[in-house]
Design a protein around this nucleic acid. Structure first.
Lengths: 146, 146
DNA sequence: TATTGTTATACTCTATAACTATA
DNA sequence: TATAGTTATAGAGTATAACAATA
């Protein structure tokens, strides 16, 4: 064991634990997505675009907190894989349509998500489990007053 | 409101919420550290190095899950600010010593941390609050079997 | 032979500024 | 005039591979 003193001090900081937990979780999730040729951010976009409602690039970005300027490269990647296509709504707005291939990929991804989320919840001791989602949901708006 | 359907689906995924919560939290914390001229990773290293026990670069990295190869640049930054100094223990290992200036900076940072963590906890509804740290601490070891 | 510190490099996610064309 | 999509660019955190020097 290395430096129990420092680790003990860190283990009392919710912010630090939140960062570490998210980092560990994302690394694991990214690994599970590798066989599907999807990065986390790509799946996030595909997931939202595939909910059935017709959405533009900006709307998707606003939903998942991805800046407008970071969407094109993400969408390019998905488009090059044939998972989405861009369909102009007018001269300015562009709808992001999930293709059949994209829907198939998304179905496979949903299975990965389901298993991943189940494993994640199982990691949390039962008596704390039901509190995780509401607590995280609250923390999400920590900065909404910006 | 934008796409309640997609947001509702995402709001049920603990993994997604964990990622978002951590992202929001880190952005806020990084902002609060700006006046101290410290990035989150730099403070993490300084914090651990300043716990009193003499630690090498590798030991600090292992404690806070920063890869050995990413330590030198971090330490260079802290050293250039005069917050730490490197003190060879033998021909190979190097102790990271927090200087007086580093201790002063660390004291200021501890106050920022304290306020930040308090604000963060206050964001979580009272009935979920006590469950946050144990839940996150458990999630931290999600991947310990690697 | 294994470990420590290091360099180089690359990837992911995120952020800002500025441009264009359209509403 | 404000908005949508885009481009370019930069920062921050993280990851791997490889090397020299040393235990």
């Amino acid at each position: 064991m290395i430096e129990p003193k420092a680790d003990a001090a860190l283990a009392e900081l919710p912010g630090y634990l939140l960062r570490r937990a998210a980092s560990v979780m994302m690394a694991e999730f990214a690994d599970r997505l590798t066989p599907l040729d999807l990065r986390i951010s790509e799946l996030t976009v595909l997931f939202v675009a595939g909910t059935g409602e017709e959405m533009t690039s900006s709307e998707i970005g606003q939903t998942v907190d991805i800046k407008r300027a970071n969407m094109p490269k993400l969408l390019d990647g998905l488009e090059q894989q044939g998972l989405i296509r861009r369909e102009p709504l007018d001269g300015r707005r562009i709808a992001i349509i999930v293709t059949d291939k994209g829907q198939t990929r998304l179905s496979a991804a949903r299975k990965v998500i389901e298993q991943f989320e189940a494993d994640l919840l199982e990691t949390v001791p039962p008596k704390h489990r039901e509190h995780l989602v509401p607590a995280l949901d609250a923390l999400r708006s920590y900065r909404s007053e910006r």
